[in-house]
Design a protein around this nucleic acid. Structure first.
Lengths: 341, 341
DNA sequence: TGAATTTATGAAATCGGTTGTAATATAATT
DNA sequence: AATTATATTACAACCGATTTCATAAATTCA
C-alpha cells in the first residue's frame, strides 16, 4: 500500500513547516514567492493530493450540493440537472444526486443522507406524494440553504423557483377554447403539489372566464407513465359525446395519448385538439407536432444553482434571503396538434 | 451558531469515554448492551449527527461513487443513471455525477475533481472526442476501481460493460437488407469510441456477407443533436439514386430524420426503411413506430453499479478482477418503420 | 543607529471520530 | 482461595489540513 503524500512530507523534504506548506498551497499572501514556488514544485513532483476530509473537518464546508429529484430519467428533469451541473462545475462544486422516485419515504431517507453527507446546500423538486416537509427542518435549523425548484412547497418561507403554472395552464386552455373546443379533458398527476394544483386552477379559470361550466369528470389523474397511455385513451373514448380538446401535463404523455388516439381512428387536431407541456424534443418529432408550453428546464437548473451558490459565497447579500419565489417566463408554442382553424 | 453535538459531549454527559460512545454507535460487539442503549438514547435526544469527515479521515472511505457521463439530458444516459442511483442508494452509497459534454478537456477536469473528492469507485462513459485515458491513471495507481460502461476503452485492462454493438448493427443492417434495401445510409457519431466503431463494422460486415459492395459515401458522421436533423436529411435527399434504407445510431435522431423525410414527401418505410437504436420511448410514439435495437440502459446502470459495489465490499472476490468485459443482451425490435414486406 | 513596522515562518492546538493496547472488573475454573 | 479467562471500558495516539499566536528576520523611518 503506497501511502499518500501529505503536507508533512513536503514540509520535511523542504525543511519548512507544515504551516508554510499549507499556506503556500492555499495561496496565502504571507508566503514568500520563492518558497511558494518551491512548495508547488515539490507538491507536483510528489503527486501530492490534498486530503479533502482533513480540510473539511476544519472548514466545515464540503463544496458539495445535493439535488433530490423525483426521477432521473425524465426529459425535463435531466435538462434541469444538466443546467445545474454546468453551473456547479464551473464554480468548483460537486453534485450529489438522488432520486425520490415520487415516494415520500424515499425523499425522507434521501434528505437524511444528504444531511449526513453535509452538503453545503440542497436543491429539491418534491416527490409526487410527499406529505409534509419535516424532513427538511434539519437543514433550516443548521442554516443550510434550501431551494425548491419546479415542484415547490410553501414551507417556512423557503425560496422556490417555478414557472407560473396557473398562467401557463390558463393560456393553454384558453387557446383550446379559442380553437372552438367545448369539451376539454385535462390529464395530470395528483394535485398534491403546486405544479399540478396550479395548472388545474388555470384550466378551471379559463372555463370560468368563458362561462363554460366546469365538469370534474373531464379531469383525469394518472401518474403519467408510458404504460398508462392506452388506458387513459380508452377512458377518454368512453366519454359521450367525445371530447374535442385534450390538455396533458407533459409532452411525452401527450405524444403517448396522440398515438393511441390515432390508433383508434381519431384525427388530431380535427377530432381532438391536443396541448402538451414542457416543450420536450418529442413535441417537435411526432405527427402532428404538439402545441405545448415552453418550460425552460435547462435555464431553470442554471438559475437555481446560480442562486444557491451565490447565496453560499455571499451569505449576507444572497438573493435567497429576501426572495421568496422566482418565476421564470414560459410561453405557449402553438403547433399543428391544436390548430383547428 | 449552535455547535454540533459530538461523541465527546455524549461521553461527558454519560460519564463514559468517547471510545465507548464511538464503539456503541458503530455496534461494536465489545460494548455492554445497557451502555449501548444509554448511548443511543442520548445520541437521539441530542440530535447527534456523526461527522463524516472525521470518520472518513480515519477510514479512508467516502461511500461515494463518481459517475462521469457524456450528457445528463439524454434519454439513454438518464436511464442508466436511474439504474445506478437505485442500486447505489440501496447499498448506502452516494452518487457524484458530472457530465463531460462530449469534451475531452472537461472529462479530464471531471476525473481530477472526482479523484480529489476521493470517490470510492468511478463509473465512466467516455466522451465523444476523448483522445487518451491518461486522466484515469491516478485511479488505477491508487487502486480505486474503475469501470467503463457503454462507451468503453481498451485501457490497461480496465473492465467495461457494453452490448455487442457489432452484432446489433449487423442485425439491424441485415434486417434492412432482408427487407430489400440495396442502398443503406448509416448515421452515427465519430468512430473514436468503441460504440460507433463497432456499429460501423457490423454495418459493413452485413454488406460483405451479402456481397454488396461497401460505399463509404453512405456513412454520415454527425453529433446527433436535434438541430442537425434537417441538414442530414438534405444530405440524404441529394443522393442519387435515393437510398432505400437508413440506420441511425439513436432513436431520437432517427425520429428527427423521419420527421424531416416525411416533410419532404418521403414515405417511411415504402421509400426509405428506417432502423434506430436504444429503444427509447420515442421509438414507440412516432409515426411509424421505429424499428430499433433494445438497449437496456436501466439494467446496464444497475449491473455496472452492482459490480462496482460488490468489488468494493469484497475486494478479493469481486468480478472486476477477472472480468474484462461484460456484454449485455440486446435485440432487434422490428416495428413499422422498416417493414417493407 | 535605534525604534517601529513589515514580512515570513513555525509551534502547537484544533476539527471529531477511530483503534491498538492497557487497565479494570467480573465470572469461571481448579 | 488463588488463578485464569472473559467482558467492559478507558487512555492516548492518530488521520491531515488549518489557524491562532508568537517570534525571528528584514525593512523602513526618525
Amino acid at each position: 500500500m503506497n501511502k499518500e503524500t501529505t503536507i508533512y512530507d513536503i514540509a520535511k523534504d523542504l525543511g519548512v513547516s507544515p504551516t508554510t506548506v499549507s499556506r503556500a498551497l492555499n495561496n496565502h499572501p504571507a508566503v514568500n514567492e520563492n518558497t511558494r514556488k518551491k512548495i508547488f514544485d515539490a507538491a507536483n513532483k510528489s503527486g501530492y493530493q490534498s486530503n479533502v476530509f482533513a480540510a473539511n473537518l476544519r472548514n466545515k464546508r464540503t463544496k458539495k450540493i445535493g439535488v433530490i429529484v423525483p426521477r432521473l430519467n425524465s426529459s425535463f428533469q435531466s435538462s434541469v440537472l444538466a443546467g445545474m451541473e454546468k453551473v456547479a462545475n464551473d464554480s468548483g462544486f460537486n453534485l450529489i444526486i438522488s432520486q425520490s422516485l415520487e415516494s415520500y419515504e424515499k425523499e425522507v431517507s434521501n434528505a437524511l443522507t444528504m444531511f449526513n453527507s453535509r452538503v453545503d446546500g440542497l436543491l429539491v423538486s418534491i416527490a409526487g406524494d410527499s406529505e409534509n416537509m419535516d424532513h427538511f427542518t434539519p437543514f433550516l435549523r443548521k442554516g443550510i440553504p434550501l431551494l425548491f425548484y419546479d415542484r415547490i412547497a410553501d414551507y417556512s418561507n423557503t425560496a422556490g423557483i417555478t414557472i407560473d403554472n396557473f398562467q401557463a395552464a390558463y393560456n393553454a386552455t384558453k387557446h383550446l377554447i379559442e380553437q372552438g373546443c367545448k369539451k376539454i379533458v385535462h390529464v395530470l398527476r395528483s394535485t398534491k403539489n403546486n405544479v399540478y394544483a396550479d395548472r388545474l386552477r388555470g384550466y378551471k379559470y379559463a372555463f370560468l372566464e368563458n362561462e363554460i361550466p366546469f365538469n370534474p369528470d373531464l379531469v383525469i389523474f394518472t401518474d403519467l407513465i408510458e404504460e398508462k397511455g392506452e388506458e387513459i385513451v380508452k377512458q377518454i373514448l368512453k366519454m359521450n359525446p367525445l371530447p374535442d380538446g385534450l390538455f396533458v401535463s407533459n409532452d411525452s404523455f401527450a405524444a403517448n395519448c396522440i398515438r393511441h388516439l390515432k390508433l383508434e381512428g381519431i384525427r388530431i387536431p380535427e377530432d381532438i385538439a391536443v396541448v402538451g407541456f414542457n416543450n420536450e424534443a418529442i413535441s417537435r418529432l411526432v405527427e402532428p407536432n404538439i402545441t405545448t408550453i415552453n418550460y425552460p428546464g435547462y435555464e431553470m437548473g442554471e438559475l437555481a444553482m446560480k442562486n444557491l451558490i451565490n447565496h453560499l459565497e455571499n451569505p449576507s447579500e444572497g438573493m435567497l434571503h429576501n426572495t421568496n419565489k422566482i418565476t421564470l417566463r414560459s410561453e405557449l408554442i402553438i403547433r399543428a396538434s391544436s390548430k383547428k382553424k
